[in-house]
């Protein structure tokens, strides 16, 4: 059951990214390109995705996940340098290629060698991240 729901969730995610056009890098870069031909589609995707999730969070109150276990413990609402620096680095890459992790995964079968190369670089970045994070911590401690 756990795996079936996982497949269903992943399928809905992939289908949504496909249908919304978010695997088309021009639509993503179009949203970021306020000085060019601005494209508001991404805001509708974000808004559309937040609606079911808003109700889902309401439904978690006083309940347990359907297949057992507990709901995830949520991080404390504190901001730290990792959240900011990491998001800035991510945003830079997102702007350059118009791909974030979700669409990069969903489009892997139809995004050519370019999508494959992006995926390899992204995975390499994920492997390097703990080390980069440690360096950032040291820099933040000195600052």
């Amino acid at each position: 059951m756990r795996l079936l729901l996982s497949f269903l969730a992943g399928g809905l995610f992939g289908a949504g990214l496909f249908v919304s056009g978010m695997t088309d890098t021009t639509k993503v870069q179009g949203w970021l390109d306020v000085f060019g031909n601005w494209d508001p589609t991404l805001a509708f995707v974000m808004g559309g995705a937040i609606i079911p999730m808003f109700f889902a969070w309401r439904l978690t109150e006083g309940r347990k996940p359907a297949v057992g276990g507990e709901f995830p413990s949520l991080p404390r609402p504190e901001l730290d340098h990792r959240l900011i620096t990491g998001s800035v680095l991510f945003g830079m890459g997102w702007g350059l290629a118009g791909l974030c992790p979700g669409p990069a995964i969903a489009s892997i079968t139809y995004n050519g060698w370019e999508g494959g190369l992006f995926m390899i670089a992204m995975l390499a970045g994920m492997i390097a991240a703990p080390r980069v994070g440690t360096v950032l911590d040291q820099m933040a401690a000195k600052a």
């Binding site: 729901l5 995610f13 949504g16 937040i50 079911p52 109700f55 359907a66």
Partner: peptide, 16 residues
């Protein structure tokens, strides 16, 4: 597409 993505997120949260 956004509603589909959010529904996927809701399934993953409430289910798993």
């Amino acid at each position: 597409g956004g509603l589909l993505i959010g529904t996927g997120g809701a399934v993953f949260l409430l289910g798993n």
